[in-house]
Simulated scan of single mutants.
Amino acid sequence: MTVHARIAVLPPHGHTLELHDVDLAAGPYEVVVEQRAFGVCHSQLDRIFDPGRSAAMVLGHESIGTVAAVGDEVTYVQPGDEVVTTWIPRTPLLGRAPAPTAVILADGTKATTHNTFTWGTHALVDEQYVVKAAGLSRDLGAIIGCALMTGAGAVMNTAAVEPGQSVAVWGAGGVGLCALAAASILGANPVIAVDIDDDKLKLARSFGATDVINAVTGDPVETIRALTAHPDGTRGVDVALDCTGRGANIPISLAAVRPGIRGTGIRGGADILVGIPRTPFLLDSFDLLNGEKSLIGCVGGSCDPVRDFATFAGWAAGGRFDAAALVTDRYALDELNTAVADLHAGRVGGRAVVEL
């Protein structure tokens, strides 16, 4: 079955997306999803502004929609099923690696993906990148496959935050807000948000931050240490999550983590690297080593999509996570370039979503 679609294509050497009419046909393990909404993620800016890119691309990796067509080998879903699309494979250990999607355009050229794409009226994806999602709201479904998974998953899975632990989140954008919400839901205290934008810090309070720090007007490390005195005499958070994607910020967030105590078996806290560092960075090796701290990489919140999406949906159903509040900026498909420009300029408060 062939499905007519209108999708956003990034030309080989340009930065402006173009809308193309295409016909999508599912390969043996592929699914065509008719979209309801999709998120606009900061990580896609890396591809849009990559100076080394030489091929046309289709972008995006989080959405909610309904299955329109399936390939002959697909057994997990069928036409009519509600699904969310993500970029972490649902069954990575079953022996078949999911194949990146490619789309043949009307002029015969090929547009490629890193793994999947969602920016269009329809998405064509390997079936490992869809998760059944009956009953999810449009807002939750549009952001669960990346923003919520990455931010909340880092708190829940990578850091395994426990009640009473102290947490600081650096960067109060869409992913950071999800991390703050998860820390609050899991009982962390204090939950500290660090950013350079007062409007984002105000929003952070509504997502569970007990304290906020503007890193321009104050010293975030000293402020965090003042807020986090431990019975063993150390100061600093048990867990920091660096969602900034700025390499220069990583040694700062690491400095805000509490150190261990030599000779006692008490190790230091952990700094979780959530944002994608776009440049090399230097660390204070003495702080890392002598403090017995940990710097831990985290991809996609270390999530199992089926297991963890059900948890996140439960949070929303129970009133503990407000997806509609996270979606601060809404666009139509033909406004996608505006959404990208707003995100690139820092004008998006929480998450940008395109509604269809």
Results as ranks from 00 to 15, higher is better:
residue 321 F to T: 02
residue 290 N to S: 14
residue 322 D to K: 12
residue 344 H to I: 01
residue 89 P to L: 08
residue 340 V to T: 12
residue 228 T to S: 04
residue 227 L to K: 05
residue 237 V to F: 09
residue 5 A to D: 04
residue 229 A to K: 11
residue 218 G to R: 12
residue 262 R to V: 11
residue 281 F to C: 00
residue 315 W to N: 06
residue 114 H to E: 13
residue 137 S to L: 06
residue 174 G to S: 09
residue 76 Y to L: 11
residue 230 H to R: 13
residue 56 A to D: 03
residue 21 D to A: 15
residue 307 R to L: 05
residue 208 G to S: 09
residue 302 S to V: 00
residue 105 L to G: 05
residue 325 A to S: 14
residue 295 L to E: 10
residue 292 E to Y: 08
residue 149 M to W: 04
residue 127 E to T: 13
residue 278 R to E: 04
residue 294 S to L: 13
residue 169 V to H: 04
residue 167 V to P: 04
residue 230 H to Y: 07
residue 184 S to L: 02
residue 275 G to R: 03
residue 309 F to M: 10
residue 326 L to H: 01
residue 36 R to T: 11
residue 188 A to S: 08
residue 181 A to W: 02
residue 1 M to T: 05
residue 336 L to V: 14
residue 165 Q to I: 11
residue 323 A to W: 00
residue 89 P to R: 08
residue 6 R to V: 05
residue 193 A to S: 06
residue 190 P to Q: 06
residue 273 L to P: 00
residue 230 H to T: 11
residue 178 C to N: 13
residue 279 T to N: 01
residue 160 A to L: 06
residue 79 P to D: 12
residue 101 T to G: 03
residue 331 Y to G: 01
residue 66 T to H: 03
residue 342 D to C: 02
residue 180 L to R: 01
residue 241 L to R: 07
residue 216 V to P: 00
residue 262 R to N: 12
residue 198 D to M: 04
residue 223 T to Y: 05
residue 148 L to V: 14
residue 24 L to V: 13
residue 198 D to R: 11
residue 88 I to R: 11
residue 129 Y to T: 08
residue 233 G to K: 05
residue 132 K to S: 14
residue 239 V to N: 01
residue 300 G to K: 12
residue 59 L to I: 07
residue 277 P to N: 01
residue 265 G to L: 08
residue 279 T to K: 12
residue 119 W to A: 04
residue 197 D to V: 14
residue 124 L to T: 09
residue 278 R to S: 00
residue 149 M to Q: 15
residue 220 P to H: 07
residue 353 V to E: 00
residue 303 C to Q: 10
residue 138 R to V: 13
residue 23 D to R: 15
residue 165 Q to L: 04
residue 176 G to P: 03
residue 277 P to W: 03
